[in-house]
């Protein structure tokens, strides 16, 4: 396997062209390299990667164009993205890129068990990346951010449609029962935060049902249900929340009221598409590494490790662009 394309014709010369009739007459000619100076596996991997460049370029390009063409796009903290977590995941992928390179180096040096150790470490780092990604997805789902309704509870603006959606949710039989139960709960069984939240919930229930509802009231409702965090890098973590840092949806998780994130739906579609496809690529890489673990990783398998590494570096490459575009822009 380690014989790259150049040496294949040489073996070929020796065996099929024959020693006697081919040597004097054809010999030097046959030494011409008929293909590219790389092994076939690597060539195919590079061809595949060039299609992958276009695949992710299409996704990233669409994201950028959609984002900058949108009248409003959520800030990362509006959609509960955590920049430090994203940076941590970037670091994990960079580390895994180094470990796979080291695995290749040690396999070439015929240090099979060390190479296997690095492959295993790459595998673990990839799993860690997916774990962190899953945790992040969970945080989105917990806030009702899904790529699509009916699961998605994100509304674009606090308008009449939003008001009627909140009213509809509050009118569901199961919620009516829960609200009644909450209203009847004695104050000593609730925390101070829950008591305050119960008071606010009672007021917004009146607000959404009120016939003399003002447009601003719905903004108040939306802010109570799920405030747009003003958390910024400046460290103003709970400034400007009007006294409440968490929304009613956080305090009463069963409530699941519709929430408002201006531009949030398009954001969710692009975010889940981009990170989802990237995560699928990571998953495929993990399968490849698992398969590699069954080989004796000497120089004979260096080509396999190299190809797996090329793929893995590409996955890292995509994340290098995804991280700033999604988390920091």
């Amino acid at each position: 396997m380690n014989a790259s394309a150049i040496s294949i014709p040489h073996d070929h010369d020796g065996h099929s062209a024959g020693h006697d009739d081919g040597h004097g007459h054809h010999g030097p000619v046959l030494q011409y390299q008929p293909g590219l100076p790389l092994s076939r596996g690597k060539l195919i991997m590079w061809l595949f990667l060039s299609t992958e460049i276009m695949f992710f370029a299409a996704l990233l390009g669409s994201y950028v164009v959609l984002r900058f063409g949108a009248p409003v796009w959520p800030k990362p903290h509006h959609v509960h993205l955590s920049e430090p977590i994203g940076a941590f995941n970037t670091f994990v992928l960079i580390c895994s890129s180094v470990t796979i390179v080291l695995a290749l180096e040690f396999a070439r040096a015929n240090k099979s068990s060390i190479a296997k150790f690095w492959i295993l470490l790459t595998l673990l780092l990839g799993i860690l990346f997916l774990g962190v990604k899953g945790y992040e997805y969970q945080a989105k789902f917990a806030h009702g951010i899904f790529p699509q309704s009916p699961r998605s509870r994100i509304y674009e603006k606090p308008d009449l449609y939003y008001g009627s959606a909140v009213r509809a949710r509050l009118g569901e039989p199961a919620i009516i029962d829960k609200l009644k139960e909450l209203d009847d709960t004695p104050a000593d069984q609730l925390s101070a935060e829950q008591i305050a939240a119960r008071g606010r919930l009672q007021q917004i229930r009146k607000m959404v049902a009120s016939p003399e509802q003002q447009a601003f009231d719905l903004a108040v409702v939306a802010d109570q249900v799920m405030p747009l965090p003003t958390e910024g890098p400046g460290g103003s973590h709970d400034g400007g929340h009007g006294g409440h840092a968490t929304g009613l949806n956080d305090i009463f998780p069963w409530l699941r009221l519709p929430a408002v994130i201006p531009g949030g739906n398009m954001w969710a579609s692009t975010y889940f598409l981009l990170t989802g496809f990237h995560a699928v690529h990571v998953l495929v890489g993990l399968i490849v590494f698992t398969i590699l673990m069954f080989y004796k990783l000497g120089p004979k398998q260096a080509g396999k490790i190299e190809n797996a590494g090329l793929y893995w570096h590409f996955v890292d490459l995509v994340w290098i662009f995804l991280f700033p575009l999604l988390y920091l822009f």
Binding site: H78, E156, K157, P158, A219, G240, H241, P262
Partner: peptide, 14 residues
């Protein structure tokens, strides 16, 4: 359509 004014509206509401 969602607009930047909607974000400001919610900030004012807060």
């Amino acid at each position: 359509m969602a607009r930047g004014s909607d974000v400001r509206l919610m900030e004012q509401a807060a």
